[in-house]
Amino acid sequence: MVGRRRIREALTDLLLAGPATLAMLVLIFAPALIVGVLSFTDYLFGAPDFNWVGFENYRKLFTDETGRRAVVNTLIYVAVVMPFSIMLSLAAAVGIQSVGRWNVWLANFLRTAYFLPVAATLVAMATVWQMLLHPNLGLVNQVLALVNLPGQEWLSDRSLVLFTLAVIGIWETVGYNLILFLAGLATIPQSLYDAAEIDGANRGWEKFWTVTWPMLGPTTLFVLVVTATRSFRVFETVATLTNGGPGFASDVLVFAMYREGFVYFKAGYSGAITMVFFFFILTLTLTQLRIVERKVHYQ
């Protein structure tokens, strides 16, 4: 009897998880495997045949100037976006939460305002940014001129463009992280704050360091992982605003992947970039989960 029940349970499990698993295997793992195999060839999209080239595509990605620049640019972008978007969203979350204590309406309004960039289509928003940052007509430079500061060519100055995109990236991720932090803040029991107060932590900062920050550990870890993967995947702003230019100054991994594969038709090389990208994301996620998780669990 027990055995029969087990089988039935197993069948139910299979029925529940099976279709999604199958879809994942067919739609994600199989194509990823094919891309992995292609990355060792010189296959050109639409070509009748290809040659095996071993690690040539990978060697090129890290030695060729254009390839290396895409890798370095991506790392710079992530290094700027991650800390700023996390710090800003945490500060905003703590602020909005305390605003919520005396004015719920305002807190809701702020929350919606911060979340708008996440809900809006980034491509459409990018067009708005393009107008704002226009060197002659844009609002940003006009405001700068009002206070006698020189205008900048935000999207066409090679030393500036990556940071402009990073600021847009921060603007885009802050709202998303904010919602996560707010959810995290809501789960901190009031009793902990009361206890801290009894122990002498009266000022806001003391409460933050002794209660809020440690209790937000799991949330922060999650936000870290999400922000890292999101910023590694940066593509829409690059594709709509700069096309990787001027002169490859804002070329990033995913855009290079698209360009090599779909504009240059170099499926093999594009496959190699995809693999490197996979590897980055995988290591990042694993290290964060393995190392950081040990230090942030309290239950």
Binding site: N136, L137, S156, T242
Partner: peptide
């Protein structure tokens, strides 16, 4: 000559500043 891209140039031209 500024370094902006095609979209910006067309916007500037249409606005009468190029």
């Amino acid at each position: 000559m500024k370094k902006y891209g095609g979209n910006e140039a067309r916007q500037a031209f249409a606005a009468g500043v190029l």
